[in-house]
Design a protein around this nucleic acid. Structure first.
Lengths: 151, 151
DNA sequence: AGTCGGAGTTCCTTGAGGGAACCCAGATTG
DNA sequence: CAATCTGGGTTCCCTCAAGGAACTCCGACT
């Protein structure tokens, strides 16, 4: 939908949005991650238009986030996350954390995550990859990097 | 743009998308976080249509993510992140991490983050809030939570 | 031969994004 | 005191994407 081309911007947020910023795309990834791998399953689960689902799946495959693979000799396919796509699920987990905290209301979170390592119901926490201390919006300074736009 | 109402879905991803899933919204938050707080600054920086910028800012204020505050006796305002909004910046940092890793290419990341606690250029890393071990897509099981949709 | 089921494609309508021009209120300037 | 400037929007029009329903294609059962 977005007619402005985010992919060309010197900004990793804009470029990421170019991959998964279109409506439904994150929900499609969520479904694939949750085990809905086939066109009909995803369409029924989300209630998305078949046309839009086709477009989104093609785009996600082109971007290397999903892989289309046949599961029958008939023309039947399923979609699976690539490594690139699996790392996007991290982003989804952070979205879930925020949504659970600020939007879930009385009913509580609709989905829980159990961490294999400790076996507990938990959520993600952001840490500095370097020192391991918490790293949030107020804990960082922004500096221009090597890929910054030429002036 | 999304005519389907994501806010009603029993999914924290969908509900979060209802807040910041529209095109431009994450980039507007990025700008506010980076210090572009006024309408004209954001509009010039992003090249967004004034109409759409007005709509997005109003929506973000309604959702409690931004706060509009006057900075002059004239009708002049600036937009600042609320606590709810600042926590969304965590999401942006994860997007940046993914975009830097998979989309930045030769030139490298356009923006770097320096962590106050250690003073190093770094990025975010996802950890389990409970045990502190890494927590990624493959490290969790999904379970229905209390807010799951009634069948 | 007829039917089924998965995975799309086509077509039409509506409504959101883009862009440019316009507007308004308070300050500054001559 | 009129004219101009400036920030922060509105209004209008055009195009293109989302939604939805119907249609197609193709290999497999019966």
């Amino acid at each position: 939908m977005q007619r402005t081309n985010f992919a060309e911007m010197a900004c990793s947020i804009a470029r990421t949005l170019d991959v998964i910023g279109e409506p439904w795309s994150p929900l499609i990834l969520r479904d694939v991650f949750a085990g809905f791998r086939r066109f009909e399953q995803i369409q029924a689960d989300l209630g998305i238009s078949r046309k839009v689902l086709t477009e989104r799946l093609n785009h996600l495959v082109e971007q290397g986030v999903l892989e289309r693979r046949p599961y029958d000799r008939r023309p039947r396919h399923e979609y699976v996350l690539t490594e690139k796509g699996a790392e996007l699920v991290d982003l989804l987990m952070v979205m879930v954390g925020w949504g659970d905290r600020w939007l879930a209301g009385e009913a509580g979170p609709p989905v829980l995550y159990r961490h294999h390592a400790c076996g507990e119901i938990s959520g993600v926490d952001l840490r500095c990859a370097h020192c391991g201390e918490p790293m949030h919006a107020g804990d960082v300074d922004l500096l221009p990097g090597p890929g910054a736009a030429a002036s």
